[in-house]
Design a protein around this nucleic acid. Sequence first.
DNA 1: TTAATAATTCAAGAATCATTGAAATGAAAG
DNA 2: CTTTCATTTCAATGATTCTTGAATTATTAA
Lengths: 108, 108
Amino acid sequence: MKEAEALQAFSALSGETRLRMLRLLVVAGEGGMTAGDISAQTDAAPSRASFHLSALAKAGLVSATREAKQIRYHVRFETLGELMGYILTDCCQNHPTVRSCCLGDQGC
Amino acid sequence: MKEAEALQAFSALSGETRLRMLRLLVVAGEGGMTAGDISAQTDAAPSRASFHLSALAKAGLVSATREAKQIRYHVRFETLGELMGYILTDCCQNHPTVRSCCLGDQGC
DNA sequence: TTAATAATTCAAGAATCATTGAAATGAAAG
DNA sequence: CTTTCATTTCAATGATTCTTGAATTATTAA
């Protein structure tokens, strides 16, 4: 991940509504969620939801696929992993204090 | 780390100047850097550097200590580790794809 | 084709953030 | 005590970003 992409990802994650949307999509898992469901569950008007979802999509944090009349969104864990890698390696040069976040529950 | 702190951190990292400042401080290591050095090495006027450094400090990503006439800044790896933990655990629920970023060079 | 539904795009104004230069603060030296 | 140096704070302007509602596109059904 390049600096420009990381900046875009940080920017996309730095809004309350967008972070909540992403977390909703994480909980939704494989099934994802439609734009309408996301709009409803975040109390954001459709145009506002669409605006924020497209910011997340532009940053590669979510993907969108049309499904009949609706558009279904999925979280893209790959990009989140790359962002983690950027922070850990490019930004923090693998500093052990940062790296220690990896020592959680299910090890690695 | 709470959501509000994570948002503040993402916000602090979502600017080119601030990300560059943080990376400078990572490279500087234990010694840290003075506000003047950071200002000079980023081509940012002193007031501008001060503005961005205080945003980083407010997010807990850097610390500041006065040293005679100068103020020395250090990166706070702890906060960066907590941010990584937030993304991995709170945000992504330890999803293996995100977790795989931990499998780099010096293992864990 | 027409109507209905789901979502996006657009335009306007509101709100927030960044930049600049000048003034103020804090610390050391003469 | 005054001056100088390093940095921050302040105020004004400029630039982005966010929000809202209306108009538009895309899809399906009647």
